[in-house]
């Protein structure tokens, strides 16, 4: 057999084997490499390379090595799931580098990190003053997690005691001009609804590149023709405006009328509407 045919056969065999093994090992191998997984991954790759081009050797030896390495990694993963101490041993533990706003020099030395490297890691998190940090851990994977002091953290709606409505993830219902029925169903809409909404926007289905439905059941689209302006949904802000207008009208009526009974009625309803506006405002302002 000519050697080039041998190489072709080996390449395809090992590609299939590697694909199969990576499927078994799962996503963890790429996203959260511990040092052990990192090394075993590299080893698997170089065994494959060696076995494909090393024609003088039997390729089944290489296959056996790859399978052993993959299974050992898999076995270590499973064991790490079961036992905490094994997990700490294999994957390592985080090292606290800053605590109560003070840098722990001992731990920094133990991890062989210089103060420059620590401040570089902090800068990657947009932190330029060590004094702003309450607590920082060097994770086993080499990245730094930092907790800022309370007063340096970004402001959230909770800090302002603001009420924000819950939001569901938008569903992509049109892609490349075709309807995705499954997404449409999970957003609780029908094809008929979608057609009406498109008609309202004066668009046809094959003009639409992406169409998404948000948690209020509003359709937003991106169309192929970028010169065309598509109106963004304004129903909710307009509704808020007309609520405010109606509330003001009722207050005016209550001032204008001479009749005591209707005055009381207008005042009561103006108050009711104000309460309604306060309740709806988080949902209607977008």
């Amino acid at each position: 057999m000519p050697s080039w045919i041998d190489i072709i056969i080996r390449s395809f065999v090992f590609l299939a084997l590697l694909l199969f093994m990576t499927k078994i090992l799962g996503k963890k191998q790429i996203s959260e490499l511990s040092f052990f997984e990192y090394v075993s991954g590299i080893t698997i790759g170089s065994i494959a390379g060696e076995a494909i081009t090393g024609l003088e050797k039997n390729m089944f030896q290489g296959m056996a090595a790859i399978i052993i390495f993959s299974l050992a990694t898999l076995f270590a993963d499973i064991l790490a799931l079961k036992s905490k101490s094994f997990r700490d041993f294999i994957e390592g533990r985080g090292t606290i580098l800053i605590k109560d706003g003070k840098v722990l020099e001992e731990n920094l030395k133990k991890e062989k990190y210089t103060i420059d490297e620590l401040s570089a890691l902090l800068r990657q998190k947009d932190i330029y003053r060590v004094a702003d940090v309450e607590f920082a851990v060097l994770e086993p994977r080499g990245n730094l997690s930092a907790l800022l002091k309370r007063e340096n953290r970004p402001l959230t709606p909770k800090d302002l005691q603001m009420k924000v409505p819950a939001e569901k993830e938008p569903q992509t219902v049109i892609m490349d001009g075709s309807i995705l029925d499954e997404a449409l169903r999970s957003s609780g809409k029908s094809r008929g609804w979608l057609e009406t909404e498109l008609e309202k926007l004066e668009l046809t289905l094959n003009n639409v590149f992406i169409g998404q439905v948000d948690s209020y059941g509003e359709l937003t689209v991106d169309i192929y023709d970028d010169k065309l302006q598509v109106p963004s949904p304004t129903q909710r802000p307009l509704l808020l405006a007309s609520l405010k207008k109606t509330q003001a009208d009722l207050e005016i009526f209550s001032l204008e009328t001479q009749d005591e009974k209707s005055k009381a009625m207008y005042e009561k309803n103006a108050k009711l509407l104000q309460e309604t506006i306060d309740k709806l405002a988080p949902y209607l302002s977008s």
């Binding site: 409505p165 819950a166 939001e167 569901k168 957003s187 609780g188 948690s215 209020y216 059941g217 509003e218 129903q235 909710r236 509704l239 009722l250 009625m265 009561k268 309803n269 009711l272 509407l273 309460e275 309604t276 309740k279 709806l280 949902y283």
Partner: peptide, 27 residues
């Protein structure tokens, strides 16, 4: 809005306010 929203909380708020508005309408 109450019919088209996917979020339970939003649906409830829209429904409740609709009932309030209905009482204003009656007056």
């Amino acid at each position: 809005l109450a019919l088209n929203s996917n979020d339970k909380g939003a649906q409830e708020v829209f429904h409740d306010t609709m009932i309030t508005i209905a009482s204003v309408k009656k007056d």
